[in-house]
Nucleic acid binder design. Structure first.
Lengths: 291, 291
DNA sequence: ATGTCTTATGAAATAAAATTACAAAAAATT
DNA sequence: AATTTTTTGTAATTTTATTTCATAAGACAT
């Protein structure tokens, strides 16, 4: 699991991370340049080689050598790549919400936080586990979704989605109902437990019961080890800083919904011909309720 | 409303949009350059002035003039800015899901689509309307959230959030209950109607009834005019391509949830001292249900 | 410690690229 | 048709990047 994350991180690191990574393999003069760029990345788009060399207390030749060492064609190339990397990154930064932020600041910060939750989840999701989960859901005779509180809403959303493609599924947000249904599952069924903390008793208990009943169990929870991962055959992890505001679930449920979307899309794609029909049917079904 | 969108678009357009915008005010030779760049933006980071001039069938001097006309310091500057703009944009591009996409492709496409929905909504949201909505919610004696189907889930999420800060609120996903509650609202109350299409009869009817009862009405719907905007005092718009897969609501509900997050955060910030206490209380309340 | 070898570095030369100045051509105006 | 204005490209100039090469610093052996 953890590998995947690190692996993906190594496949596509930003240019600045690349510089950071080889910092200690550099010659002294090149190291000075690397450090200066890491410290003032926004400056370099305006600096000429001569200016940069001067600010680093080194020579123009060393700057060029530094660029080549890093695998760039030259200084121009480095300049362009670092600026582009920075532009991409700056689109993402969002500070914590502070009490005296104005409306625009809050719109921006909350939105970026939500975007980041989706993006991080996209990076951290284990492709193999996702494939396994989709496979299980596709084959499932019936699907149970368990979740309480904010995760209960995700469970309901999942039910709503899978119902549209004619999957026998139910979202249980009531503890007793969760347990009752879980106890009656069969090995052909799938149970999905949703809990950001991974510690919600009700959901964990229901999922354990489902596992004991022989059903395939899937969890959607935050990255790392927790009670729910112990009772899940397939583990799907989301990430989210959750630090934006002290509110139970802000970005985390958006990350969870993103996982639901992914699973739904995968299942839908694999049975496309049948499913497109179901989608049309359900669309028509609600049409008379529209102006 | 529409203004804001266009206005914001003009405040921070990408570099390529800027070129597109003045295309017709350019001299013939500069226009050739603009068109070439718009057609092959990814090339220009590798082209020298001389090469670009040749490919456009014009002169080096014209390229420089073109850069200056656009407000750049020179060709280098343009090169860096366009490359950066492109890098930001390429992070966002996500094609339609195709039936034979592999797991990784689907994870990426679905996630990017969701991120884009949040981002576009962030851009399109009218700051003044959001402020008015937050103000109304803060003052509200009680809040009703109406929504059916996928939007019903958003309504429930909203209720869950505002309950945590001790707001009297209820989410109604049952048509009859919506109407019943709406009929009994007072001018001190607020009703929030959620419908992506803006055409959902049940939700529109309930919101109309609420308005007639004297309550302040807020809608969360897709950008543009629709039945629901006619019965809403305050209009909050989300955008979402929705074209990723033929499924009622994919990204749109994430955009809607983002709006809920924004409203919640605004209300929470304005009454921070009280609210932090409520949040702690509710956190403690569910703690015994955790492992 | 001294000399030899290796590596790292910067000054200066060179090459490349961008910018500017200017004159020719094209278009517009009289 | 002549004149003015605008547009454009060529060539000169300047700026910037790259390479070369000599020297300095450090490592290692004697």
């Amino acid at each position: 699991m953890k590998n995947i994350y690190i692996k993906r991180g190594e496949i596509m690191p930003g240019d600045l991370e690349k510089i950071q990574a080889i910092l200690n393999n550099l010659k002294p003069s090149e190291k000075k340049i690397a450090q200066y760029i890491l410290k003032n990345p926004e400056e370099i788009s305006d600096l000429t080689i001569a200016e940069l060399a001067k600010r680093c207390g080194t020579s123009e030749a060393s700057v060029v050598r530094f660029c080549k060492t890093l695998g760039y064609k030259g200084y121009q190339d480095l300049k362009i790549k670092v600026s582009a990397d920075l532009a991409v990154k700056s689109k993402k930064i969002q500070g914590l919400v502070s009490v005296d932020d104005d409306v625009d600041a809050i719109i921006t910060k909350v939105s970026k936080n939500n975007m980041l939750a989706v993006e991080n989840t996209m990076d951290v999701l284990d492709r193999a586990e996702v494939a396994k989960a989709a496979q299980a859901l596709m084959k499932a005779k019936k699907i149970d979704f368990y979740g309480v509180g904010a995760s209960g809403i995700v469970a309901q959303d999942a039910m709503h989605k899978f119902m549209r493609i004619n999957k026998a599924c139910t979202a249980y947000t009531d503890t007793h109902m969760q347990l009752t249904s879980a106890a009656n599952l069969s090995p052909e069924d799938v149970a999905v437990g949703i809990s950001y903390s991974g510690q919600t008793m009700d959901t964990v208990d229901a999922l354990r019961l489902a596992k004991n009943a022989g059903a395939t169990t899937i969890c959607i929870t935050k990255f790392g080890h927790s009670p729910i991962t112990e009772v899940a055959d397939i583990k799907l992890f989301v990430t989210s800083s959750e630090a934006l505001f002290r509110s139970g679930a802000m970005a985390s449920r958006i990350a969870q919904l993103n996982v639901i979307d992914i699973l739904f899309t995968l299942v839908a794609c694999q049975k496309y011909d049948d499913i497109i029909k179901y989608l049309e049917n359900t669309s028509e079904a609600v049409a008379p309720r529209k102006y």
